[in-house]
């Protein structure tokens, strides 16, 4: 039974090293070097957090760009219970849900004849996807412009401002941040807010603060 002592002692010591010291060191480094990112990449306006640029929110008002459908319960974009739909492609419930989403979009925007991009019709993996594709944003430009009595080209300019290409032109997919875009629509005076391209994320960032 000469093995019991090393087994117990090594478990205790490795617990202290990997379960206490390691997360504490990472937290200390994170809070000093990357405090904005480490605390949830909050969007701050007038000194108050108005959301996180990484966590999407639900929008149904025609004046806003809609986010992707979300499968979280009991309400869409419930960030306390991240979840995908886990519907199989053969599941009739999926086809039915997509048909209902098509109907809802068409009701809000009956004159739009463009084919609807798939990401606006499908629930994301997390249910918290902060992005839509540029195609999904373009599909909604006319509706948002009409509801806000704005010029389409102005709305399109704003979309371009909140669109990211692939990281370094290579990684991932092009995307538009819905929360930031809608925030900028509501606060045109703030639309010149801090805007850093994704490749600069290694730099220290404070919370995202739009400026007047």
């Amino acid at each position: 039974m000469h093995l019991i002592r090393p087994a117990v002692v090594s478990l205790v010591l490795l617990t202290l090293i990997t379960g206490v010291a390691y997360p504490l060191v990472v937290t200390a480094l994170a809070q000093v070097v990357y405090d904005g990112q480490a605390n949830g990449s909050l969007l701050i306006a007038n000194g108050k957090a108005v959301g996180s640029e990484l966590i999407g929110q639900p929008f149904t008002d025609p004046r806003y760009f809609r986010s992707r459908p979300s499968a979280t319960s009991p309400f869409a974009y419930n960030s306390e219970a991240s979840s995908g739909s886990n519907l199989a492609p053969t599941n009739p419930a999926l086809t039915k849900a997509v048909q209902e989403r098509i109907d809802a979009l068409k009701t809000a925007d009956p004159t739009n004849t463009q084919p609807i991009p798939i990401d606006l019709m499908t629930a994301s993996g997390s249910g918290l996807d902060p992005h839509i594709s540029p195609a999904a944003a373009e599909y909604q430009v006319a509706r948002v412009a009409r509801a806000r009595k704005l010029d389409e080209s102005m709305v399109r300019r704003l979309v371009a401002q909140y669109a990211d290409g692939r990281d370094w032109g290579l990684l991932g997919e092009p995307r538009v941040n819905v929360l930031k875009l809608n925030f900028a629509l509501d606060h045109p005076e703030w639309s010149k807010g801090q805007r850093l391209p994704p490749s600069t994320r290694f730099l220290r960032q404070r919370a995202f603060m739009p400026e007047r």
Binding site: R68, G84, S85, N86, L87, P89, T90, L94, T95, V98, Q99, I102, Q114, P115, I116, P117, I118, D119, M121, T122, A123, S124, G125, S126, D129, H131, I132, S133, A135, L171, G172, E173, R175
Partner: peptide, 27 residues
């Protein structure tokens, strides 16, 4: 997803159910 073909939506981005926009089907 072939089951969605008849609904007339734009599936060029692939099967996006359960996938995040920033990753797309490739990643």
């Amino acid at each position: 997803n072939p089951a969605l073909k008849s609904l007339g939506i734009d599936q060029t981005a692939g099967n996006m159910e359960g996938k995040e926009t920033r990753f797309g089907v490739v990643n």
